[in-house]
Design a protein around this nucleic acid. Structure first.
Lengths: 100, 100
DNA sequence: AAATCATTTCGTTATTTTGCGAAATATAAA
DNA sequence: TTTATATTTCGCAAAATAACGAAATGATTT
């Protein structure tokens, strides 16, 4: 019974998203990109945030891996924007989770 | 300028909450307690989840630390319920975050 | 007082995360 | 083709997380 336990539908996916949002730097970035509906370059964020470029890059990578953002080359920069499709899905999941 | 950087209001708190929700076991527990509006004992959860009691206890501790749940002694058991006040705050924060 | 029950804390191990600076990559400008 | 620009990857270290079983705790029943 406990061997073949499975989490209900959303649970694992929602946990993954929550985890990706579970760091101030990443939340800050998402806030900027999704909530304020803007795109930006790694360099822009570096100017604002008190962390090294490489650290920032790691966080961007994680958000990308989680599917929440996407990077579009605009050489020599990379323009990061929200990944609308997945973002909407995340919104929906959280909404369901919170008010159901 | 970057030395005295500060995250906007909610950011750190929301990140803390998101982090606490960022694990399937913890999300499952919250789902049970908050969404289904039920309380339960550690033992109940142990029966369902495929993890050791001690591991479960750790997760409960984290959720308690994050302020999302509270434990009320009902000896020799401990009845865990959602911490409504903080839960509503979390809801509000997420709501703001997601639809603003 | 001893045995039982529900749960937590402790000690340990393995893995992941967070952070940095240095070096690498890739493109554009000189 | 060299130089400059923007960003990432690499290699590393420190800290946090996740997991377990064994031992401890605290309350209740026998």
């Amino acid at each position: 019974m406990k061997e073949d336990f499975e989490y209900p539908e959303m649970t694992e996916e929602l946990a993954r998203i929550a985890k990706a949002l579970g760091h101030p730097v990443r939340l800050y970035i998402i806030q900027k990109l999704a909530v304020m509906n803007s795109c930006c370059y790694s360099g822009d964020l570096f100017e604002e945030l008190p962390i090294a470029r490489s650290t920032l890059s790691q966080h961007l990578k994680e958000l990308k891996y989680a599917g929440l953002i996407q990077g579009e080359t605009e050489a020599p920069k990379i323009k990061y924007c929200i990944q609308r499709e997945n973002w909407e899905k995340a919104r929906k999941y959280f909404k369901e989770f919170f008010e159901l």
